[in-house]
């Protein structure tokens, strides 16, 4: 199933890119379409964060991952590079679990 999802996502994402370069701009360049397209990444990423950090199966829990996310917020406010943010959050979560 994972392979099917990988190939489907690969083909779909490629076609979305190609469509942008090929479709006459007027077909898609409407204010509503542009607004929704701008907001979709915001909504999806926010939802992915919430699920990734708080869900364990069908339960909501607060554990070391929440602390990791807090560390990520601080690092982003300090304008740390992407990899520092990602691995900084991992390091703190790992340390908390050791304690």
């Amino acid at each position: 199933m994972i392979w099917v999802a990988i190939v489907a996502a690969g083909i779909g994402c490629y076609l979305l890119k190609l469509a942008g370069l090929s479709v006459p701009p007027r077909v898609l360049e409407r204010p509503l379409v542009e607004r929704v397209a701008d907001l979709i990444p915001v909504a999806l990423l926010a939802a992915l964060i919430a699920v990734q950090v708080c869900a364990r199966g069908h339960e909501l829990v607060v554990d070391a991952r929440a602390l990791g996310l807090g560390v990520a917020v601080v690092l982003l406010l300090l304008r740390a590079p992407f990899l520092v943010v990602v691995f900084g959050a991992a390091l703190v979560a790992a340390l908390v679990r050791l304690a």
Binding site: M1, I2, V4, A5, I6, A8, A9, G12, C13, L16, K17, L18, A19, G20, L21, S22, V23, P25, L28, E29, E34, A37, D38, I40, P41, L44, L45, L48, V51, Q52, A55, G57
Partner: peptide, 29 residues
Amino acid sequence: VAAGGAPISGALTALLLGTRNTLYGLRMA
């Protein structure tokens, strides 16, 4: 997938996020 979701849900989410590349394409063409 890590959250235990069906891979196809993951692929759909990936596609929705990929729609912004279509807009980039419109601008770049």
